[in-house]
């Protein structure tokens, strides 16, 4: 999951970045509507965490612009105002969920997983491909009921491939899912992670299409 956090308070923004990273998400943080607009037009995010009161405008306007561009990226609003009227206007502006400050980090992460899941067309909390079952809530995975140990990045790559198993994902696409702006991407990182994944879930579970990318293969 790659999440965009739009929040101008530096401490909260830092906390969200650190906290969501712990749940396996890759987080980019911006502090203004302008930066958020730029980020959203250049990068595909799994979800956006959006504060309403921003220095250069209202998060609600940003949300309306986003929906106006037919961008369906799930959006969770964070706001200090928690009256019913504010919640209604937030949801009616195109938000998928709403949390009032101060909130619980675990609840935020769970709500984010829920709206991301629904956007991917899944209702259940787990992702399944053959014998492989992923549980994004606790970053756990099983193959034929046997728990396997995946690192945060391995989990992220497998989840990306399993979202649409028939679709080929390019290396760049996977890198984008793995790394935020601040992080340096090692040139062969994706290959290393794929290699480790194959060792854990089976050689043929992930197919390599030379020069194109990767997709799910056959699971024993």
């Amino acid at each position: 999951m790659r999440i965009l956090v739009v929040e101008d308070d530096p401490i909260l923004s830092d906390g969200l970045r650190a906290g969501l990273s712990l749940t396996g998400a890759t987080v980019d943080a911006v502090a203004t509507c302008e930066d958020a607009d730029n980020a959203l037009s250049t990068t595909r995010y799994s979800a956006v965490v959006l504060d309403i009161m921003l220095p250069d405008g209202s998060g609600l306007d940003l949300l309306r612009r986003l929906r106006g561009r037919q961008d369906a990226t799930p959006v969770l609003l964070l706001t200090a105002r928690d009256s019913v009227g504010d919640k209604v206007s937030g949801l009616d502006s195109g938000a998928d969920d709403y949390l009032a400050k101060p909130f619980d980090l675990d609840e935020l992460a769970a709500r984010l997983r829920a709206i991301v899941r629904r956007e991917g067309g899944r209702a259940g909390p787990t992702m399944t491909y053959g014998a492989i079952v992923l549980s994004p809530a606790d970053l756990s995975a099983t193959v034929s009921g046997e728990p396997i140990n995946l690192s945060r990045r391995e989990f992220a790559i497998l989840a990306a491939l399993m979202e649409r198993p028939e679709q080929v994902r390019s290396r760049a696409e996977l890198e984008e899912r793995l790394y935020g702006w601040q992080e340096d991407v090692e040139s062969n990182a994706v290959e290393v992670h794929i290699h480790n994944l194959r060792n854990k879930i089976g050689r043929d579970a992930i197919q390599t299409l030379r020069g194109v990318g990767y997709r799910m293969g056959t699971v024993r």
């Binding site: 308070d9 906390g15 650190a18 400050k101 101060p102 619980d104």
Partner: peptide, 22 residues
Amino acid sequence: AAHELRTPLAGLKTQAQVALAA
């Protein structure tokens, strides 16, 4: 005022939960 008071509280709580979970 609600924004200015709740935002630092949200930051505190989030950072505290990060410290507990990391």
